[in-house]
Design a protein around this nucleic acid. Sequence first.
RNA 1: GCGGGCGUCGCCAAGCGGUUAAGGCAGCGGCUUGUGGUGCCGCCAUCCGGGGGUUCGAAUCCCCUCGCUCGCCCCA
Length: 422
Amino acid sequence: MASLQSLRGMADLLPGQIGLWQHVEARAREHFRRSGITEIRTPLLEVTELFARGIGEATDVVGKEMYTFLDRGERSCTLRPEGTASVVRAAIQHGLLSQGPQRLWYGGPMFRYERPQAGRLRQFHQIGLELLGFADACSDVEAIAIAWDLLAELGVAGLALELNSLGSSEDRARYREQLVTWLEQRRDQLDADSQARIHTNPLRVLDAKHPDTQALLAESPSLASALSDASQARFAAVQQALTALGIPFVLNPRLVRGLDYYSHTAFEITSSQLGAQATVCGGGRYDGLVQQLGGPATPAIGWALGMERLVLLLSQAERPVAALDLYVVSRGEAAATAALALARLCRQAGLAVERDASGSAFAKQFKRADRSGARWAAVIGEQEADDGLVGLQDLRASDHAGDRRLGPVELVEALQAARGRP
RNA sequence: GCGGGCGUCGCCAAGCGGUUAAGGCAGCGGCUUGUGGUGCCGCCAUCCGGGGGUUCGAAUCCCCUCGCUCGCCCCA
């Protein structure tokens, strides 16, 4: 390549697309505000150990997808591949948990060194929710409902909520043993990927895509039956509450989240319109993580939502356009200064203004005024500059009958008065 | 990391071994020396992602490379 390019998997967000992103971000912000959830911002870079311990050494994310390097002090640093570990670290580090339960959200870029694909980038963006210090089943449902309602509010259609329970960490450990034993007995019947995972991440074998492996798995010990009575009751309570809220879901016993820290409720919100990367939002309960990272035993639930995937679903719909109130056209040096002063005056009054700086023919400037989408055009030529006046015309009018000539202050007042009216 | 498809102007796109490399949109200039949305005229790729090779001759064939894309893996 002759010219410089962005790194693979790292995308620019251009002016034409940014409106949709800002729209989503604004809605999310407002949605969290109404839900009593406050934002937290953590660094993009963390000590590698945080993710190794938090997410799990055996996971793909940690094993092969992290952007890790040594800094000048020879410390191993990693660009965050997800948000939860950082939020939990911050909560522990600053003693937030001793101030009571925390309802937090975050947003921003995450980094995973993977092969880019539709809805998958190396730098991608997530919005996430973390409820720290909440143990009851209704908190699981509240978290899910917040995600579900946000998506609905944004007008995303055709979503499905998939649900599973991984049980308590004891349930999971017990089941893991059963499963490993069972898998080992049939090791030679498994596909290569699954064989490799028997000890590193056996639960993931359940979700193997290989048809022969899937057929074999039909008779494997089930996770559901390994759940303790308490865990089963808890899962039932989650389902009841979802039903009470009218949020539809499908049980997916093979839904095993990739990161080690999940327990009990695990869920994904998926769309069939996204191709292979169908998950828009995924999350679950992670009761053991806070303690594992050195904090007080704290039950927690959270989720992360993929911005790129969400925007992909939304981009078929309409996108909001930032409207300009006024476009200022001028000719001549004195007029240019007057135009600049007028633009500034209007901006100070809260109007959105663009000034044509080209100095080209009026016909040309008006053509641009029209295309800018501005509601009004202001004209300052030699004549107006001399008189200290400004020509004002309605760009929506088809003739010049309504054109006026007035002073800058009157113009601002006129536009403010006209604002809000069609 | 592994497979498949693709890569011509800012965007869309013709071209398929010998063309001055169509066309449309956008942009710029003009018709209209101070007034827009329509119309008309003109300008806008010595070059076809990059590098090698085959050939008298390549955007068109081959190799390598980069990038995009789809799937696998995994996840948001």
